[in-house]
């Protein structure tokens, strides 16, 4: 809790004042609380699966069932093509990536409301909470990527599914970081706004759902054309999904321009988010 940003002459180590400058993120302090962040991650992970029979197996079940549902609804009934990619792998890849973004976004978006009890009693850098959510979702993503790899091997060997992994797969960590940044940025913006206006949390639930359909998860971007295609390419999530599918299935094309657009968007959102979050964290206890 020691700050070094104060009047050294008088030896004060910390000054509590009404307002702080726009981007006063105390990264040093956040770093000092890294143990807390990791303990939050552990808590989130351990507590969810306590007293469940299947435990972490649920991490597999949810994307598998969604994939099967999508397979029947969109592939068998609606007959939406998947660019000659095995539909199971096509959907599973989309869902796996999408789940990470949507977890980061929706779980960080109620940071203040969900943690009002703790935040009202003790001080620690509030950003520790959303950051821990992003990290625990990352572990979940890692497990689900393993699932995806397993299913992919199974489909390739037993069903003759075609995959063609190329060197752009090395971009995968960047894609994931971009999703994390965007999800975190959007999430903390919403978390700051929902402290005063709870309406937004209702909006958010189906907003994220709609956003999924506005992202090429269940259809390839190439399936759309004209105006719709243009609108979809403005969605900063589109390049992430498309580039992953390019790297893994060899469909579509490498979209570096799109990635740059997404990077600029994500970083802007994160900075904006941190500014708003910082302003709200000082006084949210009075309004929450």
């Amino acid at each position: 809790m020691l700050h070094d940003n104060t009047n050294k002459n008088e030896g004060w180590t910390e000054v509590i004042e009404p307002k702080r400058s726009l981007l006063d993120v105390n990264l040093k302090e956040l770093w000092r609380y890294r143990d807390l962040i990791m303990l939050f991650v552990r808590r989130d992970f351990v507590s969810v699966y306590k007293q469940t029979v299947l435990g972490p197996l649920w991490l597999f079940i949810q994307p598998l069932f969604t994939t099967i549902t999508f397979y029947f609804v969109f592939s068998k009934i609606a007959k939406i093509p998947t660019d000659n990619v095995d539909p199971i792998l096509f959907y599973l890849s989309g869902i796996t990536l999408w789940n990470y973004f949507s977890d980061c976004f929706s779980k960080t978006s109620n940071t203040f409301v969900a943690n009002a009890g703790i935040f009202g009693k003790v001080y620690f850098p509030r950003l520790a909470t959303p950051i821990s959510i992003v990290i625990s979702s990352l572990i979940k993503l890692g497990i689900q990527v393993l699932l995806f790899a397993g299913i992919a091997l199974y489909r390739v060997y037993f069903h003759g599914a075609q995959i063609s992994i190329n060197e752009t797969i090395l971009f995968l960590p960047i894609l994931i970081i971009l999703m994390a940044i965007m999800g975190l940025g959007l999430g903390i913006i919403f978390s700051a706004l929902t402290t005063k206006y709870r309406d937004l949390s209702f909006l958010l639930t189906f907003g994220i759902q709609l956003l999924m359909y506005a992202t090429p998860i269940i259809y390839p971007l190439s399936y759309t054309s004209g105006k719709l295609n243009k609108i979809l390419s403005y969605n900063p999530l589109t390049p992430i999904i498309e580039n992953f599918r390019y790297a893994f299935f060899g469909i579509g094309q490498l979209d570096i321009q799109g990635l740059i657009y997404t990077s600029v968007f994500s970083i802007t959102v994160l900075i904006l988010g941190v500014i708003i979050f910082n302003r709200v964290e000082k006084n949210f206890m009075d309004t929450v």
Binding site: L2, I16, E17, P18, V46, K121, K282
Partner: peptide, 30 residues
């Protein structure tokens, strides 16, 4: 530092720990 003042300031020398409640953040499942 749970909430901030409207005006004025507080200067502090040293590490502060506050016990406004015991067991803050205890998770029942852990």
């Amino acid at each position: 530092k749970v909430t901030s003042p409207t005006k004025g300031n507080i200067k502090i020398k040293g590490r502060i720990a506050s016990l406004l409640e015991v067991g803050t953040g205890f998770h029942p499942e852990l």
